[in-house]
């Protein structure tokens, strides 16, 4: 039977919560094994980053939605963290199988990788709950938390966020079709616009690529 928009939204939220009920707020034993296999154990830096970004997210969420909603922001962030660890473990298992390695020191000690992955997980949670994060008493104005809001919150470049999307979708088979389409729209928005904004890492990569190819052209300014 066709669902009303409200019923569809409630089902999506329930589905997400059910999936994440079995996930943990901390790295699993399997994840800890991967951390221990690293040349430099990233566990402490990962935990500290998660803690730091919780405060950042809670603050920005409260600024966007209302100070009274800070705890709602914290709850949504915590769901995002569970998804983050769950997807990270799945990604590492796939990479271990693909590359036949167990030492992912460079990847797991990379701040950009973790921030991008966590941002993607939190984006999934925020998008599942929808645009309106306010209490339903009608006293608050609607607040737009839709993408690319999360990039501003975590001070993340769109191009770096883009890098995790496809692997995220591959690593999390429980993502609904609606959520996959949402992430695909994020990809398109990045490819068509956000990745080309001033300061994007894309320009440096293009420049390096041209230098490797031996071309001596001066890179065009980003404004053109």
């Amino acid at each position: 039977l066709p669902q009303t928009p409200v019923r569809a939204a409630m089902n999506s939220i329930q589905q997400l919560i059910m999936i994440l009920n079995s996930a943990t707020d901390k790295p699993s034993d399997t994840l800890v094994r991967y951390f221990n296999n690293c040349t430099v154990n990233p566990k402490d830096s990962i935990l500290k980053r998660v803690e730091r970004l919780e405060q950042v997210f809670k603050k920005k969420f409260a600024e966007a939605v209302g100070q009274g909603c800070a705890e709602i922001g914290s709850q949504r962030y915590k769901l995002g963290v569970r998804l983050y660890y769950r997807v990270m473990e799945s990604m590492l298992k796939s990479e271990e199988e693909r590359l036949s390695v167990q030492n992912f020191s460079k990847l797991l000690n990379g701040n950009v990788f973790h921030t991008s992955l966590l941002a993607c997980a939190v984006e999934v949670v925020v998008a599942t709950y929808g645009r309106n994060a306010s209490p339903s008493d009608g006293t608050s104005a609607e607040t737009d938390l839709s993408f690319p809001w999360i990039l501003n919150v975590f001070d993340l470049k769109a191009f770096d966020f883009y890098k995790v999307i496809e692997s995220f979708i591959k690593a999390e088979p429980s993502l609904t079709r609606v959520m996959i389409k949402h992430l695909e729209r994020c990809e398109h928005q990045i490819m068509e616009s956000l990745a080309w904004q001033s300061g994007s890492p894309l320009f440096e990569l293009i420049k390096q690529s041209k230098e490797r190819e031996g071309q001596a052209d001066q890179p065009e300014p980003s404004v053109t």
Binding site: L99, F104, K106, L107, V164, I169, I180
Partner: peptide, 21 residues
């Protein structure tokens, strides 16, 4: 994932994307 276009090739994954190969 039927409608989603997977762009990564067979030998590509998250390690390459973050320059960790």
């Amino acid at each position: 994932t039927q409608d989603y276009h997977f762009g990564l090739e067979e030998g590509e994954g998250i390690s390459e994307l973050f320059d960790c190969d």
